[in-house]
């Protein structure tokens, strides 16, 4: 029951996200008497019930932090029943569909409900999501999740193949989203479901799908067609040291020394201390990074350590380093309006 409103305290039945460490977030359902095992020790649910969200909890071997779920965090932990949409695309979809509280929005298919949660948040409390899924069990699983999350009042989850059976909505939707293999097959039904001025969005990984969809949209009188792609490029914050090269140049060295001296303390020693300081800090912040999981902190520390071995004098700076490999494609988003 923890999605619909901002809550301060945890209650029984709440879906709680446990922050265990970098890139380690797990979901659990609070039930009296249950115990959750984390790598920092056992966590009794009773210990959490009545405690505030967002406050660190000490376990025998370290701390963890229970968080109230948001659609963005839910996207990171939800059980995958299908491929899912992520926040970069989801944000764009919600934004370009011009959703606001009170809007009626249609989604096909429901999939794992990653987008659904964001859609519901946008149209609550007086709007509605109609979501369709042609796979019966997936539909039932999603429906159960919506109920558990306290969102049941804002969503209708139906088991139906919309390409074959249509939406059975008559000019009542403000917006409609299609994530189907052949979205062009249900554009006719979509155009009946939308009210005048309604917005449509389709998500397709392949350009061939986009082309057929665009043709169908134009044939049905949709205008303002926009096709776009949006990718997130995450940065990891790192301390970088680039050692100076010794040019054997007497004057160069003295000026360099002067600069360091200006900052007070003997140069060599200070450099060392700085280095150690940063290392210590990094470990402090994230005591768990040495416990085995892959984390950027480890990389930072080791690279920092290496730098300090080979160079006494170095240019130091903080940077947001781009990833070596990043997501290159998710899908094309096609937007259009029906007037």
């Amino acid at each position: 029951m923890s999605f619909a409103t901002n809550k301060r305290l945890m209650e029984e039945g709440d879906t709680v996200l446990l922050y265990v460490g970098y890139d380690n977030l797990v979901q659990m359902q609070l039930a009296r008497g249950s115990v959750h095992q984390t790598r920092y020790g056992a966590l009794k649910h009773d210990q959490l019930i009545g405690a505030p969200y967002g406050k660190k909890v000490e376990c025998s071997k370290g701390w963890i932090c229970p968080l109230q779920p948001t659609p963005e965090l839910w996207t990171l932990v939800l059980p995958h029943r299908t491929q899912i949409l992520y926040t970069t695309d989801i944000s764009m979809i919600v934004f370009q569909l011009h959703l606001k509280p009170g809007s009626v929005v249609v989604e096909a298919g429901t999939g794992s409900g990653s987008l659904s949660h964001a859609l519901i948040r946008s149209v609550m409390p007086n709007g509605r999501l109609h979501t369709f899924e042609f796979h019966e069990e997936r539909c039932a699983a999603a429906r159960k999740e919506f109920e558990q999350h306290g969102l049941g009042d804002y969503v209708t989850a139906k088991h139906r193949d919309v390409c074959a059976a249509g939406f059975e909505l008559d000019k009542e939707a403000d917006a409609l989203f299609l994530d189907l293999p052949a979205p062009w097959e249900c554009i006719t039904s979509a155009s009946h479901a939308l009210r005048q001025g309604g917005r449509i969005c389709t998500f397709s990984p392949c350009m061939e799908q986009v082309q057929r969809t665009c043709e169908a949209l134009k044939d049905h009188g949709f205008t303002d067609l926009t096709v776009l792609e949006c990718l997130s490029r995450p940065f990891t914050v790192q301390n970088i040291k680039l050692s100076y090269v010794d040019f054997g140049d007497q004057t160069e060295i003295t000026t360099d020394k002067k600069n360091t001296v200006d900052k007070a303390a003997p140069p060599c020693k200070k450099e060392r201390e700085d280095c150690e300081e940063t290392e210590v800090k990094m470990e402090d912040q994230q005591t768990r990074s040495d416990q085995g999981s892959e984390s950027w902190e480890e990389q930072t520390v080791s690279s920092g350590g290496q730098a300090s071995k080979c160079a006494v004098k170095a240019r130091e700076f903080k940077t947001g380093a781009p990833p070596l490999v990043m997501q290159g494609h998710t899908g094309f988003l096609t937007f259009a309006s029906l007037y």
Partner: peptide
């Protein structure tokens, strides 16, 4: 802070005509 994310995004439009 937890779940920290620093990112920029890349945003590209397409012309889709036969």
């Amino acid at each position: 802070g937890v779940q920290m994310k620093l990112a920029e995004s890349w945003y590209r439009h397409y012309q889709v005509l036969p």
